[in-house]
């Protein structure tokens, strides 16, 4: 279980003023829940994720994972990055095994575990390739395999499919759903796509910008498993209704921030 209590983070912006990146963020993520976080750019959603990951400090509040406070990265959490963050000089196998290597897993075991996950994400024949030889979608499959290889109970995903094309993105979403249905882990998934947030999440956390805070938490009462027939799900009334609602809310946020037109 992830508990975020009264989280606040501010920093000094380029113009010297204080920017409130996060303010009074309270959030509880249940075990094995798939939580998606949606919001306009600059709403602090990535900051929130990095705070949970233990990668950045914050000013107020606390974060607990299964009751113990976050003081840095931990073995129960692993992260998938928007720009993949693969080592360009290392092969697919070495990249997937990287997390295990950092955690001191012996060579034989880490190769074995890495190979199993490379199979899971369907990259078996690309084991010896380097990231530069792979497409964006394949690179992110490596990123996901690397995160899963350390057998986390919490998977933190920072707009993982934001940098791949639409068709690949849909395939990756379905694959992620079936991986999650099989492995059952807690996922916090950042996105800027309403459709993605609804398709994947049990709940959608809607964040607003300046200051970054949680504006609403929208439950997604769609049945699971969803990976088997994504198409039918996307045509269902509930799905359409929730995405439309989320877009209404997001558009309001954008309207508020739009600069007043000159001369009116």
């Amino acid at each position: 279980m992830i508990e975020v209590r009264g989280l606040g983070k501010s920093y000094i912006g380029q113009d010297g003023g204080v920017v409130q990146a996060l303010q009074d963020v309270d959030l509880t993520v249940a075990d094995n829940e798939f939580l998606t976080v949606l919001g306009p750019s600059g709403c602090g959603k990535t900051t929130l994720l990095k705070a949970i990951a233990g990668l950045i400090p914050w000013n107020e509040g606390d974060i607990f994972i299964d009751g113990s406070p976050v003081r840095g990265p931990g073995p129960e959490r692993s992260m998938v990055f928007q720009n993949f963050a693969l080592l360009p000089w290392a092969t697919v196998l070495e990249n997937v095994a990287f997390g295990l290597q950092m955690r001191g897993v012996g060579k034989t075991e880490r190769i074995e575990r890495a190979r199993a996950l490379i199979e899971t994400v369907g990259l078996g024949e690309f084991e010896t390739k380097r990231p530069g030889e792979l497409s964006g979608g394949m690179q992110q499959r490596v990123g996901i395999a690397r995160a899963l290889a350390v057998q986390p109970s919490v998977l933190l995903m920072d707009e993982p499919f934001g940098a791949v094309d639409e068709q690949t993105r849909r395939l990756l979403q379905e694959e992620l759903l079936s991986i999650w249905e099989e492995h059952r882990l807690t996922v916090v998934f950042i996105t800027h796509s309403m459709e993605e947030a609804v398709l994947l999440g049990d709940r959608v956390v809607l964040m607003s910008a300046r200051p970054g805070r949680i504006s609403e938490i929208v439950p997604v009462p769609l049945t699971r498993p969803r990976s088997s027939d994504v198409g039918a799900l996307e045509r269902s009334g509930k799905y359409v209704e929730i995405t439309a609602y989320l877009w209404d809310r997001l558009r309001d946020m954008h309207e508020e921030r739009r600069p007043a037109k000159a001369g009116r």
Binding site: P73, S78, M102, R103
Partner: peptide, 22 residues
């Protein structure tokens, strides 16, 4: 790429490992 350093840290890399591996 600074995100590689962040990635290594997220997997619990020590400062020494960041130097030698990244």
């Amino acid at each position: 790429d600074p995100s590689l350093i962040e990635m290594a840290r997220s997997f619990g890399a020590t400062e020494r490992q960041i130097w030698t591996r990244i």
